[in-house]
Design a protein around this nucleic acid. Sequence first.
DNA 1: TCCGGATGCTTGACTCAGTCAGAGATACTG
DNA 2: CAGTATCTCTGACTGAGTCAAGCATCCGGA
Lengths: 310, 310
Amino acid sequence: MTVQDVRAFNRFYTGVIGALDYGRHLYAPYTLTESRVLYELAHSRQLDAADLRTRLSLDAGYLSRILNKFEEAGLVERGPSAADPRRRSVTLTTRGRETAGLLDERARETVGALLDSVAPQERPRLGEAMRTIRDLLGDERAPGPREVVLRAPRPGDLGWIVQRNAELYAAEYGWNADYEGLVARIVADFAEDHDPHLERVWIAELDGRAVGCVMCVRDEVPATARLRLLLVEPDARGRGVGDRLVRAVVDFAREAGYRDLVLWTNDVLSSARHLYQRHGFGLVAERPHRSFGKDLMGQDWRLDLHGSGV
Amino acid sequence: MTVQDVRAFNRFYTGVIGALDYGRHLYAPYTLTESRVLYELAHSRQLDAADLRTRLSLDAGYLSRILNKFEEAGLVERGPSAADPRRRSVTLTTRGRETAGLLDERARETVGALLDSVAPQERPRLGEAMRTIRDLLGDERAPGPREVVLRAPRPGDLGWIVQRNAELYAAEYGWNADYEGLVARIVADFAEDHDPHLERVWIAELDGRAVGCVMCVRDEVPATARLRLLLVEPDARGRGVGDRLVRAVVDFAREAGYRDLVLWTNDVLSSARHLYQRHGFGLVAERPHRSFGKDLMGQDWRLDLHGSGV
DNA sequence: TCCGGATGCTTGACTCAGTCAGAGATACTG
DNA sequence: CAGTATCTCTGACTGAGTCAAGCATCCGGA
């Protein structure tokens, strides 16, 4: 990923956008800017001229003239703004709403034609890519709900768990393929046989993208549940995803009638430590071991699901 | 993925591009169009005016004037085109090359600033997304090598195999989570213990993106290798990816000293059938079974690695 | 309460990127 | 060789967008 790549993309996408309104058919008899103003007006209940100016970064004089033109054509009405008499509030008339709808329709068709050129099974990838770019380049406008939701795994999610665990721990701690094998074994055991009342997997989604997971399974020790494979994507950390996942497991385990909830982790995963402590887990044992190509310090943690504190 | 989403992205990206050359600082003292002309000239040895016109879809008169301006400023030289005397060939002078470099530098800095606003560990995702969009929306200009390469698995790839197998077969044939478990088990066995001289996994990449995989492992039957988990992404089919993968396994198995190569598949996977036949496999048995939530017809295929024909 | 500076809108004057039409020169086609 | 298309250039024009000045109002401080 270099500056070159971004510039190549910019050139390319400028072309795409240019091709879309080839020959100004799209906005006739309005300008691109005029139609952007109409669009903004149609998509928000009511705006002041100043809002339009900042949103579309237009020259004040230019906007004023555009609104004049619209008013003469009977598309908008201007009145004093309630809050500040210097400002002018702009509202679409019925006629204006119709025109905006018309332009909208035309734009939708053109973009639809573009979209038709993409094979249907590819479109999700396109959407995902566009969303990613908006996300990463900081589109505050429509980042969506930004809400973390937990859900049951869907086909492929167990594989995703293996993939992300392996990739992340390889990148962050240099763990080797043994770890990937271990995770694959764990999800294989889970997929092949589990009682949904006693064992479960959660996927955390942020804006429709999987960003975390956790598993709760029966331990060999009776009446004991084991939390496994807790993972939160680096770029989604700090949003309480980990908290939500751990809480889900704790609640589920308590609900399911387990007495204890245990987990095994390694001391290098320091951020997880606080998470576990916050949920009432206590460190019960530490043991050095060599796994995944590294010398590690394994830790056993335990939470008494019905106890009154430690 | 709807037209809405595409339009939202277009609006957003228009803003991004707009923000990049805020106030024309970027191109001063030239216009965007002029600098595009300079860019084209700087990035190809030598062009005729007509080429510039078509590439940048400019008005002939407009371009002529731009070139006049450049010639007066000593940035370009015009001469008759070798092939066609009507045409004029345009070349940058040293001075022109310098100016182009300067503009380029400025653009690079601005884009660099934008890129700095993205966390380093996110940048690969951004690049991937941009490449995807260019790919899907058909950028012939720089689609890259479009070359399929096979490589060894990296951390996370085994998880990817599980994920894509599960997702694809769930989507295409409605197979349930049992299949995901089976695949996870297979890769777990492989990851935990395998002799690299006798067992191997290949990932097929197209333009840096994983689009296929296959595994070769020892069978219980002595001197027999088993091909497993052959997968090609739907959008990468028809590029010979499957062929490359099967060939890799056949060659490897023969090289490793196996006598036979076998595989198990199901008759619903009809496109794979031709692939196997093409590589000399013969169907040796068919047996109905119920797996993955479906009634299926399992097939055993075999290839004599040293035999002379069937 | 009043003053100075900032903000919001409007209008006049202007710039200059981009378009259109016509003309001269040359190529291609039959 | 006639007719038509292509390439380039120039003149004439359009109109999107900018800049500056002016008026009204808001806000923060003395």
